[in-house]
Design a protein around this nucleic acid. Structure first.
Length: 267
DNA sequence: ATGGTTGAGCATCAA
């Protein structure tokens, strides 16, 4: 049975609902995970989603900042959320779903960006990011009996050399510093997670999912980073049939600075 | 080395 799953940092779900609708109509994923919805739960624009069959929604938002949501055509059970670092941010939500008799735990993350200065002694936001990553090291892809796992989201770290436009020039730039990239690799190793996008498209091929608003001519300069990820437990690896980075979405009218990342599994 | 843009919500802060 085919399963299509997408993740997208939307940078305000209310402002960009027309783009969400366009994406859903054209790509028709079974499940869409959003980050940076910037929207309180009671103001979430559910109607256009219900009209398209995404009637199963695990929404965890807050006013003004952060916010994550799982929007699904497949029934979701056991919605849970975890307050990483105990600071009250809406940065994680998870749910269970079933495909062809297999139970899958889906985690949707929005990891803190970490500010500009990669030194926790002078930048508390960077310390918060490192603490968040440390806490993620306890998340095991095989942690629940008889359950596969998928982890998606804006992890705000580009872990490999070819996840950025220039490895050397970004080594001291937050998102690609060694303490972050090694930390994220440790999250993957300890939790036995498989990076499905790199599994399909190994290094040294460049992959980007984000281009800054601050550089004019993003397309020509192409100074991107791979900040958005889809991981799974190892058992799902052989079921991966395709991956896609929807680069064209960066060129849509009033775009997010992130683009959708999609996997297809045959389960 | 610096500055560049966007969004929430109304002065800045976060990214």
């Amino acid at each position: 049975m085919p399963l299509t799953l997408a993740t997208w940092n939307i940078n305000s779900v209310r402002l960009r609902m027309p783009l969400v609708e366009k994406f859903l109509d054209q790509w028709q994923p079974d499940i869409l995970c959003l980050q940076e919805t910037k929207c309180p739960n009671d103001q979430f624009p559910s109607s256009p989603l219900n009209a398209r069959g995404y009637v199963h929604q695990a929404i965890h938002g807050q006013k003004g900042y952060h916010g994550v949501a799982i929007l699904s055509k497949i029934p979701l059970d056991d919605h849970t959320k975890r307050d990483y670092c105990n600071v009250g941010d809406s940065r994680h939500v998870s749910a269970l779903f079933k495909v062809n008799g297999r139970t899958i735990r889906l985690h949707n993350f929005y990891v803190p960006a970490g500010g500009d200065e990669p030194d926790r002694a002078i930048n508390p936001k960077f310390g918060h990011k490192l603490d968040f990553i440390e806490e993620m090291k306890h998340l095991d892809a095989e942690g629940e009996a008889e359950t596969s796992s998928i982890l998606v989201g804006d992890l705000n770290i580009a872990p490999y050399e070819n996840d950025v436009w220039s490895h050397k020039q970004l080594l001291k730039i937050v998102s690609h510093t060694p303490v972050e990239t090694e930390g994220l690799k440790e999250v993957m190793a300890r939790g036995k997670w498989l990076d499905l996008i790199r599994h399909r498209t190994p290094e040294p091929e460049k992959i980007y999912t984000w281009w800054s608003y601050r550089s004019a001519n993003w397309q020509l300069a192409d100074k991107g980073r791979r900040l958005d990820h889809i991981w799974s437990s190892a058992d799902l690896g052989p079921h991966l049939t395709s991956t896609e980075i929807v680069r064209e979405a960066r060129g849509w009218d009033r775009p997010s600075d992130h683009v959708p990342v999609i996997i297809k599994l045959d389960i």
